[in-house]
């Protein structure tokens, strides 16, 4: 069986000569079909760079990226994407924004319109369909942004710290919302986060990166049954894993300079 995403021995260096900085030092991991994988690492560990590589905006210095079994290194247009900031186009309505993402991915206009309409209703956003993004709260904008990625007909969804800019309460609500939606529509997801709790709550597997130059220092299967809910936070196993990952992340951090 082919993986939804395979990252093989990817190296990335910025700059030249003496000023060159190694950001990725041979990163390898995979996301299986229908699997939710979280990528966690200290800040500055090259998670965003990795996304730029997977999206095809940057070329790796060494190594290879495969999406759905095909080598896609340096090629664009193979992923559905949800950035940290909602990045909705301000001149398009909520529905227009979702339709645009589908259109770019090659969905026919009519079909995009129908799909968008029915999904906005399904997630309770139908009353906002004709509104411009600026009237929506941050959380609402992120819902639209997630829906836009979910509906994009591509096998891999890449979510780049999607809740990083939200306040704590909204963030918790969004995690629940995403959990429910994802469990009902299992897609292959690569999810970057800073939050260990978030990774434990949402994912099937967690990939822990070291500080830069980043390598994978741990891969761990999250053992909790689905469907999950926030009651997980009281589970002793949840807390034990949290401690463990935390210890590993601090180890991966270079000693204080």
């Amino acid at each position: 069986m082919t993986s939804a995403l395979e990252v093989r021995e990817v190296h990335k260096r910025f700059g030249r000569g003496g000023a060159a900085v190694d950001v990725l030092g041979g990163v390898s991991f995979a996301v299986e079909e229908g699997e939710f994988v979280s990528l966690i690492g200290p800040s500055g560990s090259g998670k965003s760079t990795l996304f730029q590589l997977i999206g095809g905006l940057e070329q790796p210095h060494k190594g290879e990226i495969r999406i759905g079994g095909q080598v896609t290194t340096g090629q664009r247009g193979h992923i559905a994407y949800m950035p940290q900031q909602a990045s909705l186009l301000p001149w398009l309505t909520v529905a227009g924004n979702v339709e645009l993402a589908l259109e770019v991915a090659g969905t026919a206009r009519e079909e995009a319109r129908e799909l968008t309409g029915s999904w906005l209703a399904r997630v309770g956003l139908e009353s906002y369909a004709g509104e411009y993004p600026h009237v929506l709260s941050g959380g609402m904008q992120q819902r639209v942004s997630f829906l836009r990625a979910l509906l994009t007909p591509r096998s891999l969804m890449c979510l780049d710290e999607p809740f990083g800019a939200l306040d704590a309460l909204t963030r918790m609500q969004m995690q629940q919302w995403l959990l429910k939606l994802w469990e009902a529509n299992r897609r292959s997801v690569l999810f970057v986060t800073h939050s260990i709790e978030e990774a434990l709550l949402l994912s099937d597997r967690i990939v822990v990166l070291s500080a830069s130059p980043a390598v994978v220092i741990r891969e761990l299967r999250v053992p909790f049954e689905r469907p999950r809910s926030e009651t997980l936070w009281t589970d002793p196993e949840f807390n034990r894993l949290k401690q463990e990952i935390y210890a590993q992340l601090s180890q991966g951090e270079p000693a204080a300079r």
């Binding site: 992923i79 950035p83 990045s87």
Partner: peptide, 12 residues
């Protein structure tokens, strides 16, 4: 940011 988004989703 919007430009990066458009490029990431493979807009021509």
């Amino acid at each position: 940011r919007l430009m990066n988004y458009m490029q990431m989703i493979g807009a021509n």
